[in-house]
Design a protein around this nucleic acid. Structure first.
Length: 934
RNA sequence: GGGCGCGUAGCUCAGGGGGAGAGCGCUUGCUUGACACGCAAGAGGUCGGUGGUUCGAAACCACCCGUGCCCACCA
């Protein structure tokens, strides 16, 4: 790539003068867009499957194709992008496989809602036209989320983007369905499934959300058909009694002997039903008698099979009562409940009503109360698939991080139930099954059969489609080309890592593991990284109706108050929610930029814990961007000084500060690399923040300022080179988290290569480790802080330089101070610095003791003796408190005997230092007090 | 009913057997030659409670209190 290219697509290599001169903060406007375009145009995200490099692949959790980016996506994709960018820089063939999910029910609901606004239903439109309409909607708005991922900076290999309804992926779905069917792992049958009367489809157990609700427990009398007496049953769903075909009692119940085998009369329906004994009855609950409704309760269904009871379906698919419900036929299920209870009460069947709190199942897509209902559906037999998937995690072939989620995974997998995969909707993969109505034959095939293989008559294709999660479960290999044997599949499967929230651990992760093992013969990924959910500052779930949603695009691009309110209004948020937005963000959001958002999410993504996001926090990290930008602005004028490109630090005449910062950089390189390796993203973020702001900017850059003005040309050059050297490497370390600003600055520094995105990941250099320099710098910084404290106490302004007299006790201290005297003078703003073992202590001064050296600021005229006495007393008290604690420890014989020698030695040394400090502080205090007494 | 997590500075959180940390907020001083989106100096915490293990516990264990989540067919 040539310079010209860079100039066209990226920013010019030189900083425009205006930018440097202007006293303005960093503005991501334009910068982020420009670099993203540059990366895409040069195909820098493209992973080459023919490369010899080690493969590193992550498949994106495919967002709903019609969705838009929310904060959960932002977190999830930031973490993936960090891993991908890091591995790409580290030299791996890094593939981030992007794509979207057709999201069957969710998408169908959206389009149905549109139709309703036109006064149409899907039935009026017809299947074919409806599906075409969804495709149209997908074509029109399906690109939104991928565009938004680009705004976030996601470095996906977009050329490989997939959609679950693509021909290739549909083919994979068909293949998997047929193979599972042929292996006897898919079957069709009549069972109790969860039915959503609003979506008009079956749901899997996972798609039902249970919410605790206050309900009632109705106690109903069923009288014996022959002779006197009655039994009382208790139910939370009285309308299902219309379909009762028995009453059950526990076989150990003493009442059993007289009652089992006798008949009771079902009230209202006046039907005789038997009393049966069955151990599934909980003797403690209710009355000990259970009404048995085999067509509307999974437990009753099984009980019914055991006792050969009839199955009477009284609730239809639309939620209304069936013909079987007698007089109630046609009524809505809840209306029926109400009027039925009235009738029971009127006719004396109702014994009592108790309040009863219980969990009620709701459709996870529309929150309608689901109805357990007898229905003919397709199922996957799960136990044989789950078993190898359990072993893969047990044996460590898949790691779940953090490991505590393994337990949840095992719990679910070991109690797994068959998976209802047929959905009575139109948007999805149509089940490849055909029926011959005349002869009853069922054909499952990859391509449409010409006719019935048995009788040759025409076949009718299954109208149901598959659960969306069926195709998502194939994602790690279907996106790479399976069932074709592609080179991408060979190179990148198994993928390295899957990053996801725990909310789809069962829906998606578990099923990918089962399907991957079954069809690829290997795990789909090595590591599963589970991150938390995004919450607001108070820890509440973000929802538009609460008005606490922070939209990532608003954060990145800025948003007016009107923009914020518009988001809440689209879902008819209550006035309170709008009011709270107005109060919290009266001015809307400024443009924070994707980097600031990404850094915030990274810094808050503590392992396994939820992320409580606040705008204040994002603002704080935007300041960090600005800090970086200004560090660059500071060194920019020194770049063109003809130093040439990078010189090896080891070849330069290094000063104390240089050896210190290089040593610290080493530690940061090691720390950040380790943190990424362990998926401790927040550790990496805080290491970089701390280093760049508080070590590089606060100390190193300040020290370099004086050196840049020095007469020593060699030292000037070293300072200039290292300022750039350390920043350039830090930018590389930071790039996975903040891709845009790091590229922006990096391109302006001397560099090799077209983009920071391809720059090698920094390696620590053992030759640059300098523990003694770190020690000495620590002393320097402590003394500086003490002098600044004194300046602050006595209101000595920055313009006023002060003398400093340091009384040392060892030659080593003298040597250390000699090494850093120049820095000390400028950092503490000294007029004069004298030190040595024999220096005369000034008579009147402000004094501090640091590691055995006494630092005196002899300013008789500004020092208030009474105040100085207080300062010394406070310091002395601190030292004495520490001494007391240490003394206790060292007086303890057990401690001396049992604690490790190094710890004891450390405590002794500390004690000696503290005793020394106490002596010196006490002497100085006595001196001041003597003056005060005069 | 089972399972998991959390309780550390005013707020949001990190840490983790041997000197209590960060960001934001707060106080004070500063148009310091990159940055007021800043610099400097501070204040602020018996690390939820009780007991145990240990020479030593904020950290490990038990119980308790508070709090959040997931799973589950008590009708």
């Amino acid at each position: 790539m040539t310079d010209t290219h860079e100039r066209e697509a990226g920013r010019p290599a030189e900083m425009p003068e205006a930018d440097l001169a202007a006293k303005q903060g960093y503005d991501p406007q334009g910068v982020e867009e420009r670099w993203y375009r540059f990366w895409e145009e040069h195909q820098l995200f493209h992973a080459d499957e023919t490369s010899a490099a080690h493969p590193y692949c992550i498949v994106i959790p495919p967002p709903n194709v019609t969705g838009s980016l929310h904060m959960g996506h932002a977190l999830n994709n930031t973490l993936q992008d960090i891993l991908i960018r890091w591995h790409r820089m580290a030299g791996d063939s890094a593939l981030w496989m992007p794509g979207t999910d057709h999201a069957g029910i969710a998408t169908q609901n959206v389009v149905e809602r549109q139709l309703r606004q036109e006064g149409l239903t899907r039935d009026q439109v017809g299947r074919e036209a409806f599906v075409e309409r969804v495709w149209k909607w997908k074509r029109e708005s399906g690109g939104t989320i991928t565009r938004q991922l680009k705004v976030l900076g996601a470095s996906c290999d977009w050329a490989r983007e997939r959609f679950t309804l693509d021909p290739g992926l549909s083919n994979a779905v068909k293949e998997v369905f047929c193979q599972l069917y042929e292996a006897g792992l898919i079957y069709r049958g009549d069972y109790i499934i969860n039915w959503c009367p609003r979506c008009q489809t079956a749901l899997s157990d996972l798609e039902v959300e249970h919410h605790e609700q206050d309900g009632k427990l109705w106690h109903i009398r069923y009288s014996l058909a022959a002779g006197a007496g009655e039994v009382v049953v208790a139910t939370t769903r009285p309308e299902t009694m219309l379909g009762d075909t028995a009453v059950a009692i526990h076989p150990d119940d003493p009442r059993c002997r007289d009652l089992v085998g006798r008949m009771v009369i079902l009230p209202v329906m006046n039907r005789e039903i038997p009393i049966v004994a069955d151990s599934y009855v909980d003797r403690e609950f209710g009355t000990g008698f259970v009404k048995v409704t085999p067509a509307h309760d999974p437990k009753d269904f099984e009980c019914g099979l055991r006792h050969q009871l009839p199955q009477v379906k009284v609730i239809a698919d639309d939620g209304r009562m069936t013909e079987q419900a007698g007089a109630y036929a046609g009524q809505d299920r809840f209306a029926c409940r109400k009027s039925l209870v009235q009738q029971l009460e009127r006719e004396g069947y109702l014994e009592k009503i108790e309040n009863h709190r219980h969990a009620v199942g709701h459709c996870y897509r529309c929150q309608t109360v689901v109805e357990p209902s007898l229905s003919r559906q397709w199922f996957v037999r799960m136990a044989p698939l789950a078993e190898p998937a359990i072993r893969a995690v047990e044996e460590g072939r898949i790691r779940i991080i953090p490991a505590q989620w393994e337990k949840t995974y095992f719990e679910w997998m070991r109690n797994i139930r068959d998976w209802c995969i047929s959905r009575q909707i139109w948007w999805g993969h149509r089940i490849p099954a055909w029926y011959c109505d005349p002869c009853g034959e069922t054909v499952v095939a990859r391509t449409a059969p010409a006719g019935c293989p048995k009788c040759g008559r025409p076949l009718r294709q299954e109208t149901d489609v598959l659960d969306t999660w069926f195709s998502s479960g194939l994602w790690p290999f279907s996106t790479l080309g399976w069932p074709e044997k592609t080179s991408a599949l060979a190179k990148y499967y198994p993928t390295a890592c899957l990053v996801t929230g725990f909310d789809i651990l069962f829906f998606w992760v578990a099923r990918m593991i089962m399907m991957g093992l079954r069809f690829m013969g290997d795990v789909p990924f090595r590591d599963v990284v589970i991150h938390g959910l995004i919450r607001d500052e108070q820890g509440d779930k973000m929802s538009k109706t609460r008005g606490n949603v922070i939209d990532p695009l608003h954060v990145i691009n800025g948003a007016s108050l009107d923009d914020l309110l518009a988001g809440a209004r689209t879902v008819n948020a209550p006035p309170g929610a709008l009011e709270s937005l107005r109060r919290q963000y009266p001015e809307g959001f400024p443009r924070f930029g994707a980097d600031a958002l990404r850094f915030t999410l990274t810094a808050l993504a503590g392992q396994g814990s939820d992320v409580k996001l606040s705008v204040k926090r994002i603002e704080g990290y935007r300041h960090f961007c600005n800090k970086l930008w200004n560090a660059y602005r500071f060194l920019a004028p020194h770049l063109a000084a003809g130093d040439g490109a990078e010189s090896r630090p080891a070849a330069l005449p290094l000063t104390l500060a240089d050896r210190w910062i290089l040593s610290r950089l080493n530690a940061v390189i090691t720390g950040v690399t380790e943190a990424f390796r362990a998926y401790r993203f927040n550790d990496a973020a805080s290491l970089l923040y701390q280093f760049l702001w508080h070590e590089y900017c606060d100390w190193y850059l300040e020290i370099v300022k004086t050196r840049l003005n020095s007469d020593d040309a060699a030292d000037q050059r070293t300072a200039r080179l290292l300022l750039t050297y350390v920043l350039e490497r830090s930018l590389r370390l930071l790039h996975p988290i903040m891709p845009f600003i790091t590229e922006e600055i990096w391109q302006c520094l001397p560099h090799e290569g077209a983009s920071i995105l391809l720059a090698p990941w920094p390696q620590m250099d053992p030759a640059l480790d300098a523990p003694e320099a770190v020690e000495t710098m620590d002393l320097l910084m402590e003394i500086t802080r003490e002098v600044r404290n004194i300046r602050s106490t006595y209101n000595i302004g920055p313009a006023q330089r002060v003398p400093l007299v340091i009384h040392t006790t060892t030659a080593a201290q003298d040597a250390e101070l000699t090494a850093c005297r120049g820095y000390l003078a400028s950092l503490a703003r000294l007029s004069q610095l004298t030190f040595g073992q024999g220096v005369t202590k000034p008579d009147l001064s402000a004094t501090a003791v640091v590691r055995g050296v006494e630092a005196h600021v002899p300013l008789a005229d500004v020092i208030n003796l009474a105040e100085e006495r207080e300062r010394l007393r406070k310091d002395l008290a601190k030292v004495e408190a520490q001494l007391e604690r240490i003394g206790k420890k060292l007086d303890n014989a057990d401690f001396l005997a049992k604690a490790p020698a190094a710890v004891v030695e450390g405590e002794r040394a500390k004690q000696a230092e503290l005793v020394d400090a106490r002596t010196k502080l006490a002497a100085r205090l006595a001196h001041i007090e003597a003056f005060l007494r005069r």
